[in-house]
Design a protein around this nucleic acid. Structure first.
Lengths: 340, 340
DNA sequence: TTTTAGCACTCTTTTTTAACAACTGCTAAT
DNA sequence: ATTAGCAGTTGTTAAAAAAGAGTGCTAAAA
């Protein structure tokens, strides 16, 4: 029986039962259900008393007098912090994750996508990913390559293995000589710096070195900035699974949810707000944003060999299956860092 | 009055009025509405007679005895083919399109995105885009570039300006000599050929030239194929606007719609099924796929200077505003091809 | 003390019934 | 050929009634 873990206090068992039942059914949980389905050897009246107390203490709520109980944010919090089984993962899931993560990738963004897809596939929750904070992402090398007489490609390599490339087209021919100059100057100025937009001062600084090449350099900076900015792109998977959850059966709730996911800026902020922990859980109103107060978010900083690959976030209803989600994340984290 | 175009037959006027009213309101249209809002100088009883005949002839339908009429697929078809105003575009819209299309882009995929976004923004319908059929897309040049001792980048340039690039990582060092060989061989074998997956025979063919380089070439072909395959990626904008249409107010309809858009293969097939025409309209059951029988699709092959840039498709309810959609597409088409 | 049976009470959900509103189709008149 | 007028259908809304689900409390049992 999965809650015979450490608990002797019946009230905690009741709380756990209510929460797990509610996570499964999305319906208020009655005292009778707990007795029947969770094998507690007490009468429903006894459980009712416990539930009344748990409500008093703020762990449970009642939608209305004649309904069963649902967990409060405080209840979920206790569950997540103390009651939750973080190895709730099946053999099939383990097998699936292993297979997925073994896919050979050459770009770290692909790895992030695979990880995100895997999490979403297993949990069925909407899953978003963003790249690592650019500040930790130092430029290792910049290469300019002539793709044709009038077309240049700029490739930026970073210390943690990310690669950005962008194309610049010109109305006039560019010589290999010029390209060599660009390679030298840009590397000279930017190598070792964090991967972030090239600001005005830096632009001036570069131009001061090659003041005769303004026409060549201006479009480069424009395009490079565009490419860098695109690094903030968020990757989203499984958003349409909202429809699987009864709390989104009202069309407006679903719409609202999807529109939140659509606003890149909000998502960035949410994902970036994660604390130092690898895994952070924000339940309902614990989220600062008004629009998220009915949702829960679990964020997960994934790393490989100490290199931060960005943050992956799962967004779902408050009755999210925290146990499963956290188990999956922990397992993936372990797996990602155990490979040679 | 917008239907004084070529019509003298009152029944056609009635049909047009019913369709346009239904497109606007999504409600069955009554005879009285037509008299009041569309200024036909007849009594509602007369219109009623016309409507009865139009129903007899299959152009209109009745949800139930006491309701107004809604257009049938046959009705929409007549409307699209003969009655529709294809210059239904406002000054603001023209202005907006102009501004958008003037954005400077260096990659044609960006132009497709901009065009797609513009169409979706104006029409509020879900809009999907795919790249051009690879057969018309000939390889112009392949470049291999050493990004580090153990990292190679392959760039494929095509005749119509598309650019694919991909990264290949190795466990051992690669010399510039080897890269030169790759450049020579791949161009020798693939230049001028259509951009499509490198098949087994071609792979053998290449390997026969550089049989000592199997370890280098194998991963290249793997990655190049991946990159080429990704060209089929579909770009989607405005899917969440479904929620704006009353026909999708039942959650299952909305869900169904969004899940259709999610299935890449289906979308590819639908968009590629377009006939020779620049603009094709598929109304309701005219679509072959069962899941699309309650939807309409308008596809639009966009070109610049004779070069096919791919197909853009709009998907929406059967009562889609065909007039607006087609007007926008025609205008964009003109605009794309009038620029120097 | 703790637990429990039992039942009245509350609130929601579902079903039923009734009243209303929206249009059509037809008839007879223009 | 057109129209006024009205009976007849069907859907929609509102109100009322019935059914269902669970709690909280009381008093008794363990």
């Amino acid at each position: 029986m999965r809650w015979n873990i450490l608990l002797n206090d019946r009230k905690k068992q009741v709380l756990q039962a209510v929460i797990e039942e509610y996570i499964n059914t999305a319906e208020p949980v009655s005292s009778a259900t707990i007795v029947e389905k969770y094998g507690l050897n007490f009468s429903s009246a006894t459980i009712r008393n416990d539930m009344a107390e748990l409500e008093q203490e703020g762990f449970l709520e009642k939608p209305h007098t004649s309904a069963g109980r649902i967990p409060s944010v405080k209840g979920y919090r206790l569950y997540v912090d103390e009651l939750l089984n973080d190895e709730n993962i099946s053999l099939e899931e383990i097998q699936y994750i292993k297979t997925q993560l073994e896919t050979k990738v050459n770009e770290i963004e692909d790895l992030t996508k695979i990880t995100t897809n895997t999490i979403s596939d297993i949990t069925h929750y909407a899953t978003v990913a963003i790249g690592p904070n650019s500040n930790n992402n130092l430029i290792k090398d910049i290469k300019f390559i002539l793709l044709g007489e009038r077309m240049l490609m700029a490739v930026i390599l970073t210390e943690n293995g990310a690669i950005k490339e962008t194309i610049i087209k010109y109305d006039e021919d560019i010589s290999q000589n010029q390209v060599d100059g660009l390679n030298y100057t840009f590397n000279n100025r930017l190598r070792g710096k964090p991967l972030e937009k090239i600001d005005k001062p830096m632009e001036e600084y570069i131009l001061s070195t090659m003041s005769d090449q303004i026409n060549v350099i201006k479009p480069i900076i424009l395009q490079m900035n565009k490419a860098i900015e695109e690094s903030d792109k968020i990757y989203l998977k499984g958003a349409n699974n909202v429809f699987d959850f009864p709390e989104f059966k009202k069309i407006d709730t679903a719409r609202n949810f999807l529109s939140i996911l659509d606003t890149k800026e909000e998502m960035l902020e949410v994902l970036n707000s994660g604390l130092a922990e690898d895994i952070n859980v924000y339940i309902g109103e614990e989220n600062e944003r008004e629009e998220l107060k009915d949702l829960s978010i679990v964020t997960f900083k994934h790393t490989v060999g100490g290199k931060n690959l960005g943050t992956i976030g799962i967004i779902g209803p408050k009755r999210m299956d925290y146990s499963k989600v956290i188990s999956i994340m922990k397992y993936i984290n372990k797996k990602l860092n155990s490979e040679t």
